[in-house]
Amino acid sequence: MSNNRATKSGFAAEAQKKILSKYSPELASETLEWIAQLTGESINTSGDTANFWETLKDGILLCNLVNQIQAGSVKKVQQSKMAFKCMENINSFLAAAKNLGVTSDELFQTVDLWEQQNLHSVVICLQALGRKAPNYGKPGLGPKEAEKNTRQFTEEQLNAGKNTIGLQMGSNKGATQSGINFGNTRHM
């Protein structure tokens, strides 16, 4: 785990400091409250990094969460506290989240949570999952996702757009050639 690693220095320390600065305790707290509401578990919803990590690190709560959103998303939840079993739970959660519609850009890596490397990305993933939850009849988290709004145009409407000169093409209204003196001598 992260306790056995040497402290970072140089560029690695600067990069880690920048990653850690993105973490928002308010968003983490809001996310934990949503998880507690959906799973029915009584958990500490404090958003500080230590509590957030301690609550989610074994992956059991995450697996229960996706199983609440869609039953059977994670077939077997490992109840062991052994490192590889916990990481297996986290991987199962990530696979289920991807199947529920969370994009790969919003997913986190297992070590981001297990070794506390990037808890901000964990919050981002859970927020994205919260936006997908209403699609499965569960209470959501965060803003509602936009819905597809396709429009149909007639051929006449499409052709009318071809006759309009866009402003990017420029305009010559009000332009004259006065003041152009290329090739002329300068009169003193």
Rank of each mutant, 00 (worst) to 15 (best):
A97H: 02
N64A: 09
W53T: 02
C63N: 05
C63T: 01
V66T: 11
A83H: 11
L61N: 03
K85S: 12
A97Y: 07
K85H: 08
E88V: 01
T45Q: 08
A71I: 09
F84Y: 10
N67P: 10
L65I: 08
S46V: 14
K81I: 14
Q70E: 15
N64M: 12
S80M: 10
F93S: 08
A71Y: 11
K76E: 15
A71M: 10
Q78E: 15
T49M: 14
G59M: 00
C86M: 14
C86W: 01
A95C: 07
L65D: 06
L62V: 00
A97F: 05
V77A: 02
F84V: 09
N89I: 02
A97D: 00
E88H: 04
F93P: 07
I69K: 09
T45N: 08
L62P: 00
Q79E: 14
K75Y: 09
L56T: 08
G59V: 03
G47Y: 02
D48E: 15
K98T: 08
A97R: 00
K76V: 15
F52S: 00
I69V: 14
E54R: 13
N44Y: 06
G72W: 10
Q79W: 04
S42H: 12
S73I: 05
W53E: 04
N44A: 09
V77Q: 09
Q79T: 15
A71C: 08
L56E: 04
M87I: 04
G59S: 08
M82P: 03
T49A: 15
A96H: 02
S92M: 03
